[in-house]
Design a protein around this nucleic acid. Sequence first.
DNA 1: TTCCGACAGTGGGGTCGCAAT
DNA 2: ATTGCGACCCCACTATCGGAA
Length: 333
Amino acid sequence: MMAGDMPVAEMDRLGAQAAAHPEWCAPMLAVLTEERFSDPDWLFERKFDGERVLVFREADHLRLLTRNRKDVSDTYPELAEALACQPVQDFVADGEVVAFDGKVTSFACLQRRMQIKDAADARASGIHVFFYLFDLLHVSGRNIEGLPLRQRKNLLRKVFRFCDPLRYTQHRNELGKDYFQMACEKGWEGIIAKRADAPYRHGRSRDWLKFKCAKGQELVICGFTPPKGERKGFGALLLGYYEEGILRYAGKVGTGFDDAFLDDFRKRLEKRRRDTSPLDPAPDVAGAIWVRPEFVAEIGFTEWTEHGKLRHPRFLGLRRDKAAEDVVRERPS
DNA sequence: TTCCGACAGTGGGGTCGCAAT
DNA sequence: ATTGCGACCCCACTATCGGAA
């Protein structure tokens, strides 16, 4: 995915800097971390569960681009329109497009909108989206990426007229721990900690950190898929939980293992092979190999999907202190 | 020396569109 | 007509390497 995907004329219209450095529009990305801190040198923003979008405007030419530089101007025509009638004629800004389900941003809602490529279809979809802007990279012909984040956010707030569907991303100073706790209580995905005096850096940087609200539970290992390519041991573990004595499918987990565990645990699984699925109903998983449901795994994830599977699952470890029969789906009260 | 950023590779759920069956 | 697959979104994680700290 290089500049070659985009016509030269298109690149030119995105500005001289884009033409000179095709990667320059890669968004700044946060690093996931386990520490939670309060610090006067940092500010803290809500973490949105949506689609990352950068907007480039030069007079009449306006483009909305995703993280992978896909043009989504026709997917979000109402956002393009709102940005096109801003008094400031020339800017590059960064933000997140979100859809709401009640008070919480819903990626599932947004997904139905995200795929639409025709502006008229998008407007008719009935799925309302908002664009939470949180950074300003260029304004009026000036590259301001080197300015401290606080100054960029100040300029962003002053230069734009914010009214729906455009929203300024508020932040809280210093009190990261408090804000994080509040975020989790409200059911948000987490918060982003940003070093307040840091410049905008393209790509991943520790000047931005993700504090994600922990979600996890034990699940029963019911089988596995074979490894692909250079992968050792197994591909993914097939997980389940008990519901009134019946083992229900909860999806797969395929990350969080190192090579030694992949090799070693495959051997232990082999000793427990059985021909039929312990899950009821048996999920349709290509190449699945079933085992007696004896192992319990601790799994971290972001949420249960509408289809009853884990979203963003990762393996955290085996649990020896919990009987498989005691594993049930934990539901928020 | 240690740490960090960048890359490649493997894995997840979900949606859509198109090609193969 | 159905199925499978890749291309997109959202991700987590491991392994490796080279250069910065």
